[in-house]
Amino acid sequence: MANDKKVDIENNLTLIRSLIAKHKRHDHIFAGVGMFVIISLTITLLVLFLDLVFDGYPRFNLDFLTNFPSRRATAAGILSAWVGSSLVLIVTFFAAVPLGIAAGVYLEEYAKKNWFSDLIEINVTNLAGVPSIIYGLLALGLFVYGFGLGQTILTAGLTLALLMLPIVIVATREAIRAIPIHIREAAYAVGATKWQVSLHHVIQYSYGGILTGVIIGMARAIGETAPVITIGALTFIAFLPPSPVGLEPPFINFEWLEAGFTVLPIQMFNWISRPQMAFHVNAAATGAIIILLTLLMNGLAIKIRYNIRKKIKW
């Protein structure tokens, strides 16, 4: 009898062991597939990036950043393009971030759960997937002609803000949802109003997540070409917009918002479509700089998010 039992147990054990081994095998397979995907993606990106760097290497100098476009490829630079891109992104940031965060907080904390907020929610998620050219056409009709803003930095900034808004809203909502309910309950328990809870706690703790959304949105905006071309960005512009800060009071002016502009991807596209090889070098250098900028922005976001998360102790 005892012997039988022992055999039974042993049989059982081998069964369980084989089961564990099988599941572990699945584990390994999944990890392997995941690793493969990540590595092949990273390698692809790296190869593309290095290719651009090698092609554009002769142009990596200060002149390239401080010169205006020119018919002579070696004398041409991206000054008006990177200044244009930066100014447009500043407008985008100040338009999309406050609006996006406010919308996210409202939808998450204030809005009643009914068909109307469902409708808004579906629309917001939908908007995140709309092709950017559609935003360009919308902006052309609405901002350029409807509001008469013209083909300016302001228009481009607002257009890209539209593009970025759904990303910020979705990120804000996700971040807010991650905050434990106890935090809110504790605040309400000591008599805080909804506004105080949102401002002092909800937004505070969701900064990390919101920031990620903001940076992803900005990184998308910096590479956008189609909507910016649609609203009428220029290609050759060899002067800078009026400076936002001046020496005379009131020190800050907004004339630059009314200026024409070009952006990095347009400059790059123009150069790549030229027959002369020397211009392709410029295009490669510009491409490398765009990728580098995106990488820097993403890196910054990760760093800030990490610092903020470290500070939060629940």
């Binding site: 407008v91 100040f94 338009a95 406050p98 803003l149 013209g150 907004f254 918002l257």
Partner: peptide, 14 residues
């Protein structure tokens, strides 16, 4: 600042 940017009156182009 954001509001200021958004409510800018359109000025004559240079």
């Amino acid at each position: 600042l954001g509001a200021g940017i958004l409510s800018m009156p359109t000025m004559a182009a240079v």
